[in-house]
Amino acid sequence: MRRALVRRAAQHFRSLCSKPAPPGEGPNHRAIMSLDADTIRPYVQPNAFVAPSASVIGSVVINDKSAIMYGAVIRGDLALIQIGALTVIGENSVLTAGAVDGMMTPSDAVSTGLALEPELWVGDYCLIGAGVTLKGCHLMGDNIVGHCSSVAEGATLGRYAILEPGTSVGEGVSIPEGEVWGGSPAQKVRDVTDDEKLQMRQGAERRYSTTASHAYEFLPVGFGYLEKEALEKTDAAVASK
């Protein structure tokens, strides 16, 4: 009798593990979210990738072949944020722009017909590491920002500028083109080599090809991926006969 109960319990446990749990009743996360009754919408190029657990909110522009990785937050509720082409925003990084006091919000600009200049600009061919904080700064392009670094308001990174992991760039600091900076506060470490400049462009292309496989696996609605996997298994079984 005891063995039969144990056997039935094991079968029940295996049946539970063979199927994913149904969706919970928690908040319905949206990776791309509009504001102000859908008047302030993010613009994401069709060939860009936004991970399902990322948050792209409000006045944000994401250009060709760029990727917003898992857990990243790009919050354009107070000012425009623009991401260039072939740029990767790493896991759990946070990009914000604008201040509550004395700052025209995107909804104000739309209602008055004013054009917005991006307050936070990340140029083309940039690699932003994991856990990075960018606020109201400008990255001119071909930049690498190491993991867990921060760049404050009004700071500028010239082309081919690199920040080592854990670097802290203060307000209004201007980092010249082709220099490597590190530390807290940030200081120049050395010049960028020609090989490093070449690798930035080549690395951007490789990163995009990697994120394409992530985009293929992502289905935006519910548990639709289960049906996709079942169809793939059926097709494979038919092909093997």
Rank of each mutant, 00 (worst) to 15 (best):
S66H: 04
W121N: 04
S55H: 10
V56S: 09
G166I: 00
E196P: 07
E153S: 14
V169A: 07
G222M: 00
D108V: 01
L16S: 03
T210E: 11
H138D: 07
D64K: 10
V180D: 08
T211P: 00
D235A: 13
M69I: 00
T112N: 14
M103R: 10
D101L: 13
A79V: 03
R41Q: 11
K241S: 13
K135I: 13
G102P: 05
K65T: 02
A79G: 05
P220A: 00
H214R: 11
L86F: 15
L226C: 01
G178A: 11
T105P: 02
V50P: 07
T210Q: 08
H12L: 14
W181M: 07
S111A: 15
P185H: 12
K65D: 07
H12E: 15
F218P: 00
Y225L: 00
Y160S: 03
T210P: 00
G129C: 06
G98R: 04
Q202G: 01
R2K: 13
C137R: 13
G203I: 03
L219W: 00
S66Y: 02
E91M: 05
D64Y: 02
T211W: 13
G129L: 02
Y216T: 05
K19E: 07
I57E: 04
L120K: 12
H138Q: 14
R2Q: 13
S15K: 11
K233Y: 09
V6Y: 09
E177N: 12
W181K: 04
I68S: 04
E25C: 04
E171L: 09
T234G: 07
Q202I: 08
G166M: 02
D124E: 08
A109S: 13
Q202K: 12
K65N: 14
S107D: 10
T210L: 11
Y43V: 09
A215T: 01
F49W: 14
V60A: 08
A37W: 03
H138M: 11
I81Y: 09
V110D: 03
V60Y: 03
G129D: 04
L78N: 10
D77N: 07
